Simulated assay, not measured.
Amino acid sequence: MMTEDYLKIKAQGVFAAGGIVQTASGTFDPIKGQMADDGQIRHSDHASIFYQIPADGNGKAITFLAGYGQSKNGWMSTPDGRDGFSNLFLKKGYGVYLADQPRRGAAGQSSVPVEISAKPDDLNWFTQFRMGLWPKFMSNSQFPQDEQSIDQFFRQMTPDTGKIDFQVITQALVASLEKSGPSVMMTHSQGGVPGWMIGAASDNVTGIIAIEPGSFFFPENEVPAKIDTKYPMPVQGVGVPMATFNKLIQKPIVVYYGDNIPDEPSEVPAWDFWRGVKQQAHQFADVVNAHGGDATIVYLPDEDIHGNDHFMFQDLNNAVIADHMAAWLVSHKL
């Protein structure tokens, strides 16, 4: 029986974008087949895009780029089976384009080899993502904490099948945007750096929503001093040519951070890292706005939205956060 809460999809599909074709020397012999390397070709380093367009949409689109160890699946649902961001924004009228970056997920065909580790490390990410200190969650956590949901969350992780190359990711996503047309970029975590690059490289990017990026672009002569934390690596901005920076800041930018980011140095290195990142985020916004751009930093507790971790788009209140982002989109006519 159909309920009132359903989606009517006008179009959906999958396509590959960008990438290269490797060609071995010689002439391929179809009789020898796999026994022969001469003349073989390999299509690799593309992005894989799943898209859906709502029947009664607003004519606008969002392209989603996942963070480290994640694929497009993380945008589609939540560990406890609620609507993910792709459905939530479809219901708001947006076409959604969910990207697997080159060398990951459904875009796993790589031009370079890599050894995939099988080392157990799930619980490190539990700390890094500010979910808590295993096995205890943060006292105000909005993450679904039943055993099945935790199992589903950890099973989202997926390996890279080749070295992460931001230039390769950028080229593939720029090609994707040439197919999709104008779109807001929504990035998460490690997806933030190629998100800045894609925003600077493509006129089809109309705005950027960055969820907890770990690094930011600055003009080459305005990179702030590195921020040392108790994490093994300092928080360090990336210097880019002024022309590149100016292209990026032609698009409105909003950056979201969840809860439980310490204001003072923390004994937990992974959490202290986020203290430094949040500090640099404000430096980024100050520089963008000083150069005539439009950058906003949203710290959810300041908006009276509490208990969110690094995966705010999967938390129990993800619909509240989607509403907040949608309000920003509408205010910028996106």
Results as ranks from 00 to 15, higher is better:
residue 91 K to W: 04
residue 91 K to Q: 15
residue 91 K to T: 01
residue 92 K to F: 03
residue 93 G to L: 04
residue 93 G to E: 05
residue 93 G to W: 02
residue 94 Y to L: 10
residue 95 G to M: 03
residue 95 G to E: 03
residue 95 G to W: 00
residue 95 G to S: 15
residue 95 G to A: 15
residue 96 V to R: 04
residue 96 V to Y: 03
residue 96 V to I: 15
residue 97 Y to A: 06
residue 97 Y to I: 01
residue 97 Y to Q: 05
residue 97 Y to L: 07
residue 98 L to M: 15
residue 98 L to K: 05
residue 98 L to Q: 10
residue 99 A to L: 10
residue 99 A to Q: 03
residue 99 A to H: 04
residue 99 A to D: 03
residue 100 D to M: 08
residue 100 D to W: 03
residue 100 D to P: 04
residue 101 Q to P: 02
residue 101 Q to Y: 07
residue 101 Q to R: 14
residue 102 P to N: 07
residue 102 P to V: 06
residue 102 P to A: 07
residue 102 P to G: 04
residue 102 P to L: 04
residue 102 P to D: 04
residue 102 P to I: 03
residue 102 P to S: 09
residue 103 R to A: 06
residue 103 R to P: 00
residue 103 R to N: 14
residue 103 R to M: 09
residue 104 R to Q: 05
residue 104 R to K: 10
residue 104 R to C: 01
residue 105 G to V: 01
residue 105 G to M: 02
residue 105 G to L: 01
residue 105 G to Q: 03
residue 106 A to M: 05
residue 106 A to C: 02
residue 106 A to N: 10
residue 106 A to I: 01
residue 107 A to F: 07
residue 107 A to D: 08
residue 107 A to L: 08
residue 107 A to I: 09
residue 108 G to R: 06
residue 108 G to N: 04
residue 108 G to P: 00
residue 108 G to V: 00
residue 108 G to D: 04
residue 108 G to H: 07
residue 109 Q to K: 09
residue 111 S to F: 11
residue 111 S to W: 11
residue 112 V to G: 01
residue 112 V to L: 09
residue 112 V to R: 13
residue 113 P to C: 08
residue 113 P to A: 14
residue 113 P to K: 11
residue 113 P to M: 10
residue 114 V to I: 15
residue 114 V to R: 13
residue 114 V to N: 08
residue 114 V to Y: 01
residue 115 E to R: 12
residue 115 E to H: 10
residue 115 E to I: 10
residue 116 I to F: 01
residue 117 S to K: 13
residue 118 A to H: 13
residue 118 A to P: 00
residue 118 A to K: 13
residue 119 K to G: 00
residue 119 K to H: 12
residue 120 P to E: 07
residue 121 D to T: 02
residue 121 D to K: 11
residue 122 D to S: 15
residue 122 D to G: 07
residue 122 D to M: 13
residue 122 D to I: 08
residue 123 L to F: 15
residue 123 L to M: 11
residue 123 L to K: 13
residue 123 L to Y: 14
residue 123 L to N: 02
residue 124 N to V: 14
residue 125 W to S: 10
residue 125 W to G: 05
residue 125 W to N: 12
residue 125 W to Q: 11
residue 126 F to V: 09
residue 126 F to P: 02
residue 127 T to V: 14
residue 127 T to R: 11
residue 128 Q to S: 10
residue 129 F to M: 13
residue 129 F to H: 06
residue 129 F to C: 08
residue 129 F to S: 06
residue 130 R to E: 01
residue 130 R to T: 05
residue 130 R to K: 14
residue 130 R to D: 01
residue 130 R to C: 05
residue 131 M to V: 00
residue 131 M to C: 04
residue 131 M to Y: 09
residue 131 M to R: 14
residue 132 G to T: 06
residue 132 G to S: 08
residue 132 G to Q: 04
residue 133 L to H: 11
residue 133 L to S: 10
residue 133 L to R: 12
residue 133 L to V: 11
residue 133 L to F: 02
residue 134 W to H: 13
residue 134 W to Y: 15
residue 134 W to D: 03
residue 134 W to C: 00
residue 134 W to V: 03
residue 135 P to W: 02
residue 136 K to R: 09
residue 136 K to M: 06
residue 136 K to E: 10
residue 137 F to W: 14
residue 138 M to I: 00
residue 138 M to P: 00
residue 139 S to V: 12
residue 139 S to M: 07
residue 139 S to L: 09
residue 140 N to K: 14
residue 140 N to W: 02
residue 141 S to D: 04
residue 141 S to M: 05
